[in-house]
Design a protein around this nucleic acid. Structure first.
Lengths: 155, 155
DNA sequence: TTGTGTGGTTGCATCATAAAACCATGCGCC
DNA sequence: GGCGCATGGTTTTATGATGCAACCACACAA
């Protein structure tokens, strides 16, 4: 197989996420969707991507439960693509990517926008990883444990 | 050009991040590196990926300042690949991907590991986006603003 | 019926990826 | 000091993914 090695059966949750949204376009499509974009043509012109690729990606994300097709909404007879809760759950990933760029990009002056708290107009805080008791955690202060079996092994 | 449309000059920081780490393997390589993997062969066998691709990815990430090559460390005469601060800064992205999978994966029982606080052995908290004053923010409570110009326009 | 706009699908050229073969170096061994 | 083997890659070659352009389908209007 010279296929693009699927991570579908992988036990690592990171690999499993990448299986769904780890390609070039999906995260940008979700970014647009979070801004309220719903129509095929709007995705296409905003992202400047090929229509066939967009078509394939939208369908894949619908299959993954990230998007849903809604029959209409503003009168026109075409369907729309709206985020499911699973799709909206990608938001922290996008924020993490954004903040990584803001912190480490070699040409930060080329970054056009900052993410702000809508109420105050002030930049948001950096995402922080905290322990159950609220302690800030560095990567080294974390570790992986085997997932505990579900009670009754989920019959 | 039928190239894989580069986002290099894009003003969106998310696109810029994806330009560097948005491909199939880079994030998994960084995941391994955060676990302490440093050697070519170890990356290769842990990830089960083709050696040529690994070679290309490692070089690209070195070029991007995510990894550095260290001449040696444990006696053997080969070089190693170690994360830079920029590389370690990817950690929140990986955590966000992991948590997305944990929350929304269709087959969560296939996820093998959970991320825990090393001290207490307890699961870490979900990443949260907060305003400057500490208020929890939903996507809808955020917005984008043009980046303010640097003082003196960085003459 | 023709024309236009939206929402796609199809065809074909090109690029990226993957597997395997090959090459280079270091090292144990005799 | 030549032989085999492990490590760390590079080259070769086949195929899947991507991108552009052209085409098709449907709704609506004149």
């Amino acid at each position: 197989m010279v296929k693009r090695t699927s991570f579908e059966g992988d036990a690592c949750p990171i690999a499993r996420s990448l299986e769904a949204i780890g390609d070039w376009w999906s995260l940008l499509i979700i970014r647009e969707a979070l801004f309220g974009v719903r129509r095929f043509g709007e995705f296409q012109s905003n992202l400047g991507m090929a229509k066939n690729i967009l078509s394939v990606r939208l369908r894949a994300m619908v299959d993954h439960g990230i998007l849903t097709t809604a029959p209409a909404s503003d009168g026109s007879a075409y369907q729309e693509y709206v985020l499911t809760p699973k799709g909206r759950g990608v938001f922290p990933v996008l924020v993490a990517l954004r903040q990584w760029s803001e912190e480490f990009d070699d040409r930060p002056e080329e970054i056009a926008t900052i993410l702000v708290d809508r109420d105050k107009g002030r930049p948001v805080k950096k995402l922080e990883l905290r322990a159950e008791d609220g302690r800030l955690l560095t990567p080294a202060e974390t570790t992986l444990k085997p997932r505990p079996a579900r009670r009754r092994s989920a019959g």
